[in-house]
Design a protein around this nucleic acid. Sequence first.
DNA 1: AACACCATGGCAACCGGTTCCCTGGACGGA
DNA 2: TCCGTCCAGGGAACCGGTTGCCATGGTGTT
Lengths: 351, 351
Amino acid sequence: MTRKSGDASRSTIRDVAARAGVSASTVSRVLGGVYPVSAATRGRVMRAVRELDYVADARAKAVAGVGTPTLAFVLEDITGPSFAHMAHGVEREATRLGHLCLVCSTEGDVRHELEFVEMMRAQRAAAVILVGGTADTPEYRERTHRMADSLASAGSRLVLCGRPPLDPGAPVTVIEYDNEGGAYTLVAHVLAQGHRRVLFLGGRADHTTALGRERGYLAAHRARGLTPDPSLLLHGDFTRDAGHRLMQQALKENLDFTAVVAATDMVAAGALTALHEAGLTVPGDVSLAGYDDIPFARDLHPALTTVHVPYEELGRLAVRTALEHTPGAPDEHLLLGTHVVVRDSVGAPPA
Amino acid sequence: MTRKSGDASRSTIRDVAARAGVSASTVSRVLGGVYPVSAATRGRVMRAVRELDYVADARAKAVAGVGTPTLAFVLEDITGPSFAHMAHGVEREATRLGHLCLVCSTEGDVRHELEFVEMMRAQRAAAVILVGGTADTPEYRERTHRMADSLASAGSRLVLCGRPPLDPGAPVTVIEYDNEGGAYTLVAHVLAQGHRRVLFLGGRADHTTALGRERGYLAAHRARGLTPDPSLLLHGDFTRDAGHRLMQQALKENLDFTAVVAATDMVAAGALTALHEAGLTVPGDVSLAGYDDIPFARDLHPALTTVHVPYEELGRLAVRTALEHTPGAPDEHLLLGTHVVVRDSVGAPPA
DNA sequence: AACACCATGGCAACCGGTTCCCTGGACGGA
DNA sequence: TCCGTCCAGGGAACCGGTTGCCATGGTGTT
């Protein structure tokens, strides 16, 4: 069988060398571009490269020490709008810095997370970015500390992005955003409208993101000398469906409240629909607020008052900080600020 | 300086071999797991592996021909909900099949697209999945045909996912979904309610996704013996902001219409807000429909009537079909069906 | 014309793995 | 006791690149 251009066997540098009538080293040098090569030789080599449609194997280059660096991004589910924005930030910054970007979804399974990190270590990824809150157990800290050590010993670096920090000493870069502060300001705003019974809706009970926001909720109450009713904390998860279901349930149980603060905008969206379905108006009958400021928040009706989180910036910073880290330098811990975006979904409680 | 466990120099298979007092081949065989190795030797090797926290370099393995296969996913912007769902499908199926998943955003720049494809060829990716509609120009077809050949000759495969197919003969797998059919059914539904002047809103004028939906819009009119007013086609892009802006503009110009079909749910969301801002009710004064059935569609108020597209399935199929493809086999071209989801945003025109 | 020097390109070692092929030793059977 | 067999493990070639070092040949200088 004769070789034609559509042949499925990738050509090697030696094929190019043979066709150009030079040695492999020369081809490598021509392609490298720094070593002096005569114009004639360069021409012959380039022609052979073109004719064979040759591209050097990036993996082989990597083994030889001149590869494109890679960076890995591990999250629970790319489908969530805030995760998607982080991913976008990570990806943009990675390509800006000439890195390739591997992505893995864990689907919330810790085993997958461990497997992925191990694979990334094998890939010699420059950094592994772990994204999104989680349950902050001793087991989590220990497991993640081990990951961090393991990656560090392989010359890589673990980044926790919106995820609880570890004990000091773990070689880890932490980029967080202020869940507690944002929720504090938001709930203070709600309370300032005169609300006294505020439902906190959604979020897994042991999840640091939900927990941080809950702390802000409680602190805002305490700052006003109020002690919130514990029965007003309704847990579930972070989905739209959870918001919908929990809201329906709260209404069916005739829970006494005049405002709802949802753990995320997704939850708020579901809750809003449940309120509408029950014939209630927002903010006339019930006020509603979210968290995340996803693009859709302003298209809910009424437009959702929420907390803006600079997710894309978070992703970008994660990459930059991790790649700028030099071994031995102190570990970075950044906390990004958030701010409340006041729209139309929070008003005074009904008279 | 003494070596401690936190040392940043990754250990090689020879380090492990030395520590276990065996040869590198033996370590490789122990880790490979197939070749017979005595229990004692295996124990020593495994201990050394554990002590050094050794992981074989995946790139070196790849060069030697036993690597983890990789697959690449190239899209415009992971932030769009439909793209995110496709990405999710791709990622899930990829990991299910034991593949790593590289992701790149082109930000709509053709040069980035070319660069990425070239990089993926260098990475020896098993498949490169190009996602999302585009302008279907001769230049596009030629350029993409070259990509396809180039990838094929490197033993890889190009997949077009929701993107216009090429001339026959291009070694490419195409997975599309039915834009025209979905829009046809949707617009037929709108017309059946009695609407006669239906605005088509958003979508880049030369973009195949918008174009397909527009064709469905036109066909549905023709099927009823209607000729739509060309001034009712308003182009922009696929963002929420475009929907908002175009709708405002249409209202300001006093365009005569009783229903709006948006190019995407995102556009519809922006349009809905503009309608609300203008004091119009939906569907009382104006009916509104979207396309994509993103999760948020049901939380708009009124819940959005739209066309469901199986995006996640699309991503999964793209991966499976591409990886199952054997060189020389005929090229696949799949067309996935869509269906209308009737909610509350389309009603009869005002009397 | 002889010398030095520099531009050019080939050889071979190396990156970190895998695997073919071969050897040494233990073990079983005659 | 001796021989054949089998099994565990080592040596070396190879995957596809890069690069240090050296040989060669052409040019410039005196």
